[in-house]
Design a protein around this nucleic acid. Sequence first.
DNA 1: AAACGCAGCAACCGCCCGTAC
DNA 2: GGTACGGGCGGTTGCTGCGTT
Length: 417
Amino acid sequence: MGRAPCCDKANVKRGPWSPEEDAKLKSYIEQHGTGGNWIALPQKIGLKRCGKSCRLRWLNYLRPNIRHGGFSEEEDNIICSLYISIGSRWSIIAAQLPGRTDNDIKNYWNTRLKKKLLGRQRKEHQLARKSGLVKQDIIKRSGGVGGNSTNSHSAVPATDDQNPYWPELPVLAAPTVLPQQQQQPCFNDHASLRKLLIKLGGRFSSDINHNHETNQVIQGRPTNIQPTYQVLDDDNNSSYAAAAATTQQMDEHYSGKNMQSLLIPRCGIHALNNSSPSLSNNDVISPHQFAQTHYIVNTDNIDGPGNGIMNNMFQGQGGDYETDQLKEMAVYNNNDNQQRFDGLEFFCGEEMMVMNNRITSSYGESIGWGEMLGCPPVASSSDDYHDSMDRLMPAAPGQECGFANDQLMSGYPGEAL
DNA sequence: AAACGCAGCAACCGCCCGTAC
DNA sequence: GGTACGGGCGGTTGCTGCGTT
């Protein structure tokens, strides 16, 4: 049984809105609100429009403080970062950009930003190709780390003849990939674009491929890639650079401390401005604040200071993205533990499948960014959320949950405490 | 000047989810 | 518990304007 249509399509006007219609709708909503029923609204005000159309018009154009066009570089960065983190969740991305609508961002992404990034990737490839040739030569001369012929996961750069734009796409081993990943690389879908974004900066460079060829994978995490966190403890001014720290080390470091801070996995959130936030323990970070927060940066990892994974993010793309703007986040919660994640809950979001072989577990499972960087998967419920965090921060002996102690993790959005 | 192609964007479509009954 | 409904959202379409041939 199909659904009844929301309106009589034969009797509603479609297409562009006239100024008169706009005026009618705007003045009514400003005076009376929507009344909680968009479907009934057009009849009330004598508009021959579908309720959904009215809603869209209001949300995207008529409501106050809407901005159109003129996206700044910072906004670009935020959009890219969030796209990496959560994919095409435009409404959530829009929530981080005051005055922007999801539709606007979506259009902007599809028409401009995507192309901008593709061009950037092309540039990067040209550079990488040059340096790659040099490295290959060096490896050959030194005896190398063994050929890739035995490693079916290896990223084998194609030649420009085969794929002038995307020659670095890794060749995936059939048994380890999901069906959609077995398809030929195609960059007209979000998943592929996210992979591209990851590749643009978050990719594990050929350096890593060569230098860590023998890396072990322990408990589903590649050991060469440690989650790193910047954590503010209850002193509120001492940060712990957790470069290359294991989650266990983190637990040990903070065991017994009255943690006021909330760990947010580094999932590509970008600092918006350079002014330090003057957040106190009483502060609750809102989406708006979030978007304007200067996040503490720690781009170190096991490869050495400044050589972290995230350091690669957006790096080398003509210098448009400054590594010192890359983010490590410590978001304070307030004293009564009423953490608010308005619009932030997605950071426990969707796992990001990474094509690179470095991120394949010993079980043949692909490991997402979430796991690599300590970002738990989608939390569609409180239980999922805690499960996710448990995975991120495994429980220490005697602990019910390694991450979610009372101070830290009591705040699944909307969860009663 | 006309035809064509492309980019940008507003609006629509259809699915999913939450909720009221 | 099942169903209907409205809201929200992501994906897609189609119109318009501009640049190129």
